[in-house]
């Protein structure tokens, strides 16, 4: 399984689209590695600096409809190349969510109230995420607060995460 633990990048906006995650002009790259420097380059978010703010982060917490727009799997790949294998949001665009799990990455949906609470407590601080996959539990903490909750994946998505994605899953099944 991929690593889901570590420092959190907070993106306090809804409808962050795949063009913002990786602009189309980089879709001419033939390797995933080449996408690394351009991740979130066009994100429309005040005072966000992709070069600085992505450093050492391993998880994203954001709002609604993350990953809307294009079907480009370059979006999760660009995140993965930067060490981010998990995004926690109120909800996701369908294709982006499937692309995450198809790569053995996680797209976790939590109720808007919980996302609100996480932003209130941890945004702007050095917060870290710890995932207990067997218990379907996430724990977010910083030096003064912590927040624990359960998430629901279902058997299919859990299996995709365990085997590392759809290609390996399909190999054993169809």
């Amino acid at each position: 399984m991929k690593n889901f633990n570590g420092k959190i990048l907070f993106l306090d906006r809804s409808d962050i689209n795949t063009d913002e995650i990786i602009p189309a002009k980089y879709l001419t790259e033939l390797t995933k590695e080449a996408l690394k420097p351009y991740c979130l380059e066009d994100l429309k978010l005040d005072s966000f600096d992709s070069k600085k703010d992505l450093a050492e982060k391993t998880a994203i917490v954001t709002r609604e409809n993350f990953g809307c727009g294009s079907s480009r799997e370059h979006a999760p790949w660009a995140l993965e190349e930067n060490g981010i294998n998990i995004v926690i949001a109120t909800n996701f665009a369908r294709i982006f969510r499937q692309n995450m799990f198809n790569n053995g990455m996680m797209a976790i949906e939590l109720p808007a109230e919980q996302i609100d609470e996480i932003f209130k407590k941890f945004a702007g601080t050095d917060a870290t995420l710890a995932v207990d996959f067997d218990k379907s539990e996430i724990k977010i903490s910083n030096n003064k607060d912590s927040f624990t909750t359960n998430y629901t994946l279902g058997l299919f998505y859990s299996d995709l995460v365990k085997v590392g994605g759809w290609i390996d899953y399909v190999d054993t099944k169809y």
Partner: peptide, 30 residues
């Protein structure tokens, strides 16, 4: 198709959906 606007072909009463490259790869193979 590995293109989000694949929904276009629903105009013919098809279930047509955009997918990512991994889904496309599995579609091509299986």
């Amino acid at each position: 198709m590995g293109d989000s606007h694949t929904c276009t072909h629903g105009a013919f009463c098809a279930f047509a959906a955009g997918v990512g490259t991994t889904d496309l790869e599995v579609g091509i193979l299986k």
